[in-house]
């Protein structure tokens, strides 16, 4: 029988000793979280994924419902990802709040000429490959904004709070991410 309790109730139940609640919670969020990590640090996705869940497990005693569970979960994931990037020596400037202008996205290049195929319909597999390839090509901050919205289901406010930037910046990042993805797909989408 499917457990209809919201994620927050499941986490509270797990905090209070209900191991089954964690199984349900994990089943609901495992794919989303894994993809969020895999699209940003593909080669370390397993390690990061496990670390994030272990942090959830270890933080259960102090868990209180102050936000959506997904917001809490993806904030932990974001912080772990930043730690990972820092350890890798990768600059975090691209994730930081832009100075002066909330629209931190460069001007979009003109769309590449769409490859017009005779059948005018891309196969499903081709579409998947193209959109995932376009996602990888996005600037890190835009990609994260898109993944938080798409995988985490976070609102603009929640994305802003999770990534530590203003709402307008988060909105700008998400808008440019979608625009780039649309342009990369061209007519195929």
């Amino acid at each position: 029988m499917e457990d209809l309790r919201p994620d927050e109730a499941l986490m509270l139940a797990y905090r209070d000793g209900d191991a089954g609640a964690f199984d349900v919670l994990y089943g609901r969020n495992r794919g989303k979280l894994y993809r969020y990590l895999a699209h940003q640090a593909a080669s370390h996705a397993d390690e990061l994924f496990q670390d994030v869940w272990l942090r959830v497990i270890n933080a259960r005693a102090g868990y209180e419902v102050t936000a959506k569970f997904s917001t809490w979960l993806f904030r932990i994931a974001h912080n772990r990802l930043m730690d990972h990037f820092r350890a890798q020596g990768r600059s975090l400037i691209e994730f930081a709040e832009p100075q002066g202008d909330d629209d931190d996205c460069p001007a979009l290049d003109p769309p590449a000429p769409a490859t017009t195929e005779p059948d005018a319909m891309l196969a499903r597999k081709d579409l998947a490959q193209r959109i995932l390839g376009a996602l990888d090509e996005l600037p890190a901050a835009q990609r994260e904004a898109f993944l938080l919205s798409e995988e985490g289901g976070l609102s603009l406010d929640e994305i802003a709070a999770t990534t530590g930037v203003g709402k307008e910046t988060a909105k700008s990042r998400l808008r440019y991410a979608l625009e780039r993805l649309r342009l990369s797909l061209g007519d195929a989408a």
Binding site: R30, G31, Y34, D46, F49, Q50, W53, I57, L185
Partner: peptide, 27 residues
């Protein structure tokens, strides 16, 4: 359309061994 295309494309999931490790740790 982009979102739908992404959802259709993004099917990556953790492996069963990883799932088992995390659930074991939680219990």
């Amino acid at each position: 359309a982009i979102r739908q295309a992404y959802r259709a494309a993004a099917q990556t999931e953790p492996g069963p061994q990883l799932d088992a490790r995390i659930l074991q740790a939680a219990h």
